[in-house]
Amino acid sequence: MQVEARDLHFARGDRQIFRGLSCHFPRGKISVVAAASGGGKTTLLRMIACLLLPDRGSLVADGSLDLTQLSRDEVGRYRRRVGMLFQFGALLDTFSLYDNVALPLREHSELDEEQIRVEVRRVFDAVGLEDVDPLLPGELSGGMVKRAGLARALIEKPELLLCDEPFSGLDPPTVRRVEELLVSVNQRFGATLVVTSHHPQSTLRIADHLVMIDDGAAVEGPPRELMRRDPGAAEFFLDAVPGAALGSAAR
């Protein structure tokens, strides 16, 4: 699935978050959305998930499906093609990990419990979780919560996977592990990934496409190209690639 944002405007109270933001997320690629804190990364992700409507503008999936005009039933059908990894997992805290991941299949599929068990095993294996079935989300570390959230997002084989700050609050080895997971999800399942992040190193390692939001508008392109031509992107990558800022300043 590919998604395109067209001329989005959005304000919270007096604060204008998007002022005509336009960008696109190409099919089958990993796109990273970067912005300063409070710059609208999560807001954009929630709009793509139909959890939030823009004040003006449109979001179009696959060239023709206007996400801002969908009925309730159509939103339900669209979301079945989309998985979302929330920043803090958003797992149901009274359900075991197994039940959390099995829930979408129990709700929407005709599979019997044995088939559901096989599917849950498949995604647990894919995200590297073992022997966690009876655990409650509160009994897991931050990294395991992210992986469990990812397992739940993957259980219905989504065409589009939205990941909200998947690297935040994790130690460096776990960050690398989650990066590898996202890349493998992209490669194994062929899903389009939209990832919000303020980790420049991770962005450079995983992104095919970078969307930089600055002052309510977006610039986009391949990360290294964007780093060369856009001062905001150069500044974002300052820590990861010190020469980036220098190159930008020289231009």
Partner: peptide, 12 residues
Amino acid sequence: TEQLDGLRMMSV
């Protein structure tokens, strides 16, 4: 804790 949004994203 976004659990309600998590449900919505599963079309529940």
